[in-house]
Nucleic acid binder design. Structure first.
Lengths: 254, 254
DNA sequence: GCTACCGTGTGGTCAGACCACATGGTCGGA
DNA sequence: TCCGACCATGTGGTCTGACCACACGGTAGC
């Protein structure tokens, strides 16, 4: 039913067995965030594989945002289980965009779909009771509006990204938050290029700030439909203005 | 302004330089799907790094669904650029679920959000003009209803997954399709466990088939709201019935 | 003409050797 | 007693070289 006989099973490549071992330890609860993995040399000896194979598996886990590695000795050294899905999501989406697997247009559209749901859920929750989870997002808005301290485009965009991410986090769905972060970061280069060619940045940033406040207002008013409409307009307007969707990772010339 | 002097810049780890090189080649169009990467040994020599570092980078690309490797010689050997985004999504989400980064509940919820948008878009498009893109999905439904040929639960679930994926593909947004596939696959183990404990599989499968037809009917009728409602009920009912969301990767006992 | 063979290049793996680094203990002096 | 310098230890990061299994493609022999 399961394995035919005794042999085989070993058909997987060495680094895959390492990955499987770690995954099963995670599922079994033998490994939880904060724990240290055994050292590469110990893992290699324990699993009967070479250290290079262990390293290939750890590299994958690192890129996927599951572990953090550090040299040296002490409590902070070695490979430690973390859980930072957004990092892996970013790398995944960005490379897929680069490889033509994803169109920038679809990335923007997907982000819109996810974020629409985020604000809808937040508005629903806020209609029932005040939402303290929104506090981080509000702080970011305050930071964006500091009088007398003009932000550069880059600084503004950084805060803008943080605001949208804060909304996603506030909704409580980590999967959506990670995906949104990944989608956004993966096209960040295009967004920044788009912002740099805008004729009047002052006008744009002023409008964006107003739209952010309006979105939050709709959420706090407990109006899902309004919040949804506003986030949609917010995203679509910006991307239409900067023409981000038409930017193509490929250079057709030369 | 940028680099202090001549040195440094090399601060990135060796395997990262390999990754960056490949990414930039992808963006520049020097590498497109179907192309062969240079051999590991050539890449190592060219970039001035060890072969093991090259391998770590290639391993990442493989897990992320960007390349396919094959031993031997000939046209099919070596590392070839592909673009299978769902593979990377699956690995990422599955491991994050295992590491407690993602809750199964949130995965299901996110899938629901994405799929709601898929059927909404399909219904809108279908309202304007017939949608030939739905053909693959319809074929799968036919296969699920073959009379006299009772499908096992596993076979049924495989077709079920294919149906939902076909809908996503029909919507034309590859990012959403890939993410949905990844989300679905990552919790497939839990879904199958849930199905295996259902009291009356015949009743369930009959109901699911009817629901599938109803969803398609709503799409073809060009009724976005109805399609949205039906897909939501379809997914929520099933997951409530099988209690998938409550399945926890951890075993609290022993 | 066909078959069997073998050279060649590929990824897959392992072993061993360094390196830089961060820690934590030890030893010496104040 | 206290404190600073020192160094042994263990970690990840990297490179080198060596095999292996495999798949192709040409070649020699039938």
């Amino acid at each position: 039913m399961s394995a035919a006989s005794a042999p085989a099973v070993d058909t997987a490549r060495a680094w895959e067995t390492v990955l499987q071992r770690i995954e099963s330890d995670l599922i079994a609860g033998a490994l939880t965030p904060g724990d240290h993995l055994p050292s590469e040399r110990a893992l290699a000896a324990e699993l009967g594989v070479g250290r290079s194979s262990v390293r290939e598996a750890l590299r994958v886990l690192e890129v996927l945002g599951l572990i953090r590695t550090q040299t040296g000795s002490g409590p902070q050294s070695g490979a430690i289980i973390i859980s930072r899905p957004s990092g892996g999501m970013t790398a995944l989406v960005r490379l897929q965009v680069a490889a033509h697997g994803f169109a920038v247009r679809d990335v923007v559209k997907t982000r819109l779909v996810l974020e629409s749901d985020v604000v809808t859920e937040l508005a629903r929750a806020s209609g029932a009771a005040p939402t303290p989870a929104l506090a981080p997002a509000l702080e970011i808005l305050d930071a964006m509006e500091q009088p007398g301290d003009e932000l550069t485009r880059d600084e503004f965009l950084t805060l803008d990204q943080a605001f949208h991410l804060a909304l996603a986090v506030a909704s409580g769905n980590e999967v959506i938050a990670a995906m949104m972060a990944g989608l956004r970061e993966s096209i960040e280069a295009y967004v920044r290029v788009g912002a740099s060619v805008l004729p009047s940045w002052d006008d744009t940033s002023t409008r964006l700030k107003a739209e952010h406040r309006a979105i939050v207002a709709a959420i706090e008013a407990g109006d899902p439909e309004l919040a949804r409409t506003r986030i949609r307009d917010h995203i679509e307007t910006y991307h239409a203005e900067t023409n981000v969707s038409s930017i193509h990772p490929h250079r057709e010339d030369t």
